[in-house]
């Protein structure tokens, strides 16, 4: 069991999200920076799909009530375990009673989220095949809500592997403000001037952004044709442009369908960057084609394979 001593602004139980229920309006949910959640799980020897905590930039304290192995991946929040600094993307051992402490944010410029994986995973009940918290629908995760002080979360069975206990760390990809985007289904309905602005102007992350999506501020993007669209499927990564001309990047908790024109789609390999961007930072969109997007995904897969080889001496097969 782990106990929340200080919950921070938004700490939720997340995994890689639920799928297969979009036709009922059930969102995907899951870690906004899915690669970081995956890496944290794999560092402690968990299946990549187990649940951990998504911790949003703020002071958080968590007590471990059993000796275990844990890892933090994603943003570097200068965490410590009973006063000893913890490096991100390292496997750590702790004794029962030890306290993991994330201090007040040191910099406004730091990325937004870190992911805690614990040996055995957070063992809250599954809802529709996932343990992810859906904050809008108020289900999944721990009581369908963000964690509060005093919450006690059960852990799953520990892995007990020799390999899993060896001290081990890895490098994480560096966050940059450049996000690669495929033109979306309604891209051609925007004026050439609008498209030019979309690719060449910086986009400021608005402070009203949340797990459903990031609202961006910048030049107004005018749409030339098309009229009001009928509602259609949207996915995390889709960039919608409402009539005010200010784009919204949809994230894991996004609605399953929408009606605003889709000017672009963030490639899978870069979606974590959008989700990690702090408010008021400027993002830039770079156009890429499908072949480029596939290459970027292949590079991710390669990096994961190298990690698995060095951590466990073999490749990792999901499921």
């Amino acid at each position: 069991m782990i106990e929340i001593l200080r919950a921070g602004i938004q700490t939720t139980v997340q995994d890689l999200g639920r799928c297969g229920h979009r036709h009922l309006g059930i969102a995907q949910s899951g870690a906004l920076d899915a690669p970081a959640m995956q890496l944290a799980n794999r560092l402690v020897g968990n299946a990549a799909t187990l649940a951990g905590l998504e911790i949003t930039r703020s002071a958080v304290e968590i007590r471990f009530h059993r000796p275990t192995i844990f890892a933090l991946c994603g943003a570097d929040f200068f965490a410590s375990l009973d006063g000893v600094m913890i490096s991100p993307a390292w496997r750590n051992r702790c004794a029962a009673g030890q306290v993991l402490k994330i201090p007040e944010p040191i910099s406004d410029a730091s990325t937004m989220r870190t992911y805690l994986a614990v040996d055995g995973g957070i063992a809250v009940p599954e809802f529709l095949g996932s343990r992810a918290t859906d904050l809008q629908g108020k289900f999944g995760g721990f009581e369908g809500r963000a964690l509060k002080k005093g919450d006690r979360l059960p852990l799953g069975l520990a892995n007990h592997g020799e390999q899993h206990a060896r001290r081990f760390g890895t490098l994480q990809p560096l966050w940059t403000s450049e996000i690669r985007v495929l033109p979306g289904p309604e891209y051609a309905q925007f004026s050439t001037v609008a498209c030019d602005k979309f690719w060449n102007q910086p986009w400021t992350v608005s402070s009203v952004s949340n797990r459903m999506g990031y609202r961006l501020r910048g030049p107004v993007l005018a749409r030339e044709t098309g009229g009001d669209l009928r509602s259609h499927a949207v996915l995390p990564g889709v960039i919608q442009v409402p009539p005010n001309g200010q784009p919204i990047v949809l994230l894991a908790d996004a609605q399953t369908t929408g009606g605003y024109p889709r000017i672009g789609v963030v490639i899978a390999a870069d979606l974590w960057k959008a989700a990690q961007a702090p408010p008021d930072t400027q993002l830039r969109f770079r156009q890429i084609d499908l072949a480029g997007a596939r290459l970027a995904s292949a590079k991710w897969a390669q990096a994961r394979a190298i990690f698995e080889q060095s951590a466990y001496g073999k490749s990792y097969a999901e499921k």
Partner: peptide, 17 residues
């Protein structure tokens, strides 16, 4: 296919690439 999402006179099939 991961998900099949009918919309208003439209449909999206989310696939495993």
């Amino acid at each position: 296919l991961v998900d099949v999402v009918p919309g208003m006179n439209n449909l999206a099939a989310i696939f495993d690439p």
